[in-house]
Amino acid sequence: MATGRVVRFDEVRGYGFVSPDGGGSDVFLHVNDLLIDKSLINPGVLVSFDLEAGDRGLKASAVSLASDRASSSPRTDPRPASAASHASAPDARTDLDDGTCEVLSVKDYTDEVTEALLISKPPLTGEQILSIRERMVRLAMSHGWVES
């Protein structure tokens, strides 16, 4: 069973997309594959699901909330989950003395950008998020902020 965050879900049309925690392309999500009420599926919600091959690529099936705590209580920390966990780690260095910053993997950077977009602009469509993420990764690579 995989987990990921809902990027976008249109209740009227009955479909959306999930960004898998393991990385890779966003996964199609259809209302018929939900094991929970569709009103619980909102951008940023952590879900668990099975991956299946669909007509146009991978799709999520048997979709449920990943955990009661993670999905029912809103996050109070405005930082992306990975940034918050890095900051609470005992050996985390938030301010480097030499003015450099930690270089992230493309996956970690993409996860951070996705979460920041979901928190700051929940109405963004999945297509808009994918477009912004692609441009942000190219920018980060050109500055050496991520390792390819």
Results as ranks from 00 to 15, higher is better:
residue 25 S to M: 11
residue 9 F to E: 02
residue 116 A to E: 03
residue 19 S to Q: 12
residue 61 S to D: 04
residue 147 E to R: 10
residue 74 P to N: 08
residue 84 A to D: 02
residue 68 D to R: 14
residue 55 D to Q: 08
residue 83 A to S: 02
residue 88 S to F: 05
residue 8 R to M: 08
residue 81 A to P: 07
residue 2 A to M: 14
residue 42 N to S: 07
residue 123 P to M: 05
residue 61 S to W: 02
residue 92 A to T: 01
residue 51 L to H: 11
residue 7 V to N: 09
residue 31 V to T: 07
residue 8 R to H: 15
residue 64 S to Q: 06
residue 18 V to D: 02
residue 27 V to N: 08
residue 88 S to C: 10
residue 79 R to P: 05
residue 59 K to D: 13
residue 21 D to H: 07
residue 81 A to T: 12
residue 81 A to Y: 06
residue 4 G to R: 13
residue 132 I to E: 03
residue 126 G to I: 14
residue 106 V to W: 10
residue 60 A to L: 08
residue 67 S to H: 04
residue 73 S to P: 00
residue 103 V to Q: 06
residue 71 S to G: 06
residue 143 H to D: 06
residue 58 L to M: 11
residue 57 G to D: 15
residue 70 A to L: 12
residue 84 A to T: 02
residue 113 V to N: 10
residue 26 D to L: 07
residue 55 D to Y: 09
residue 127 E to T: 15
residue 102 E to N: 11
residue 31 V to H: 01
residue 143 H to M: 13
residue 148 S to R: 15
residue 118 L to H: 05
residue 19 S to W: 03
residue 46 L to Y: 00
residue 77 D to K: 01
residue 75 R to S: 07
residue 146 V to F: 09
residue 66 A to S: 10
residue 130 L to I: 11
residue 9 F to T: 04
residue 52 E to R: 15
residue 139 L to P: 03
residue 39 S to R: 06
residue 80 P to E: 00
residue 30 H to S: 13
residue 35 L to Y: 08
residue 115 E to D: 06
residue 125 T to V: 11
residue 145 W to Q: 01
residue 71 S to F: 03
residue 95 D to Y: 13
residue 61 S to M: 10
residue 62 A to M: 09
residue 66 A to V: 12
residue 109 Y to K: 13
residue 61 S to L: 03
residue 100 T to A: 15
residue 13 R to Q: 07
residue 73 S to M: 12
residue 126 G to K: 12
residue 18 V to M: 06
residue 30 H to L: 11
residue 36 I to S: 07
residue 53 A to V: 13
residue 112 E to L: 06
residue 114 T to H: 13
residue 49 F to W: 05
residue 65 L to W: 11
residue 133 R to F: 06
residue 7 V to M: 15
residue 133 R to S: 11
residue 8 R to P: 03
residue 50 D to H: 02
residue 7 V to H: 04
residue 30 H to C: 04
residue 34 L to K: 08
residue 35 L to H: 04
residue 86 H to M: 05
residue 33 D to R: 14
residue 77 D to I: 01
residue 136 M to T: 15
residue 8 R to D: 12
residue 26 D to W: 08
residue 60 A to N: 13
residue 55 D to P: 15
residue 105 S to H: 10
residue 76 T to Q: 05
residue 63 V to I: 11
residue 120 S to A: 10
residue 19 S to F: 13
residue 144 G to L: 12
residue 59 K to M: 15
residue 87 A to H: 00
residue 136 M to H: 02
residue 145 W to V: 05
residue 11 E to W: 04
residue 114 T to E: 05
residue 139 L to S: 03
residue 93 R to Y: 06
residue 110 T to N: 06
residue 11 E to L: 12
residue 23 G to L: 11
residue 145 W to R: 04
residue 75 R to I: 08
residue 83 A to Y: 00
residue 14 G to K: 02
residue 54 G to W: 01
residue 89 A to C: 04
residue 49 F to H: 06
residue 92 A to H: 03
residue 121 K to S: 14
residue 44 G to K: 01
residue 113 V to D: 05
residue 117 L to P: 00
residue 120 S to K: 11
residue 12 V to R: 09
residue 44 G to V: 01
residue 132 I to F: 13
residue 1 M to W: 00
residue 16 G to M: 00
residue 64 S to V: 04
residue 94 T to H: 10
residue 47 V to N: 01
residue 131 S to G: 11
residue 38 K to Y: 01
residue 101 C to E: 11
residue 123 P to T: 10
residue 13 R to I: 05
residue 34 L to R: 04
residue 89 A to F: 10
residue 48 S to A: 13
residue 87 A to F: 09
residue 29 L to C: 15
residue 95 D to M: 12
residue 62 A to K: 14
residue 89 A to V: 05
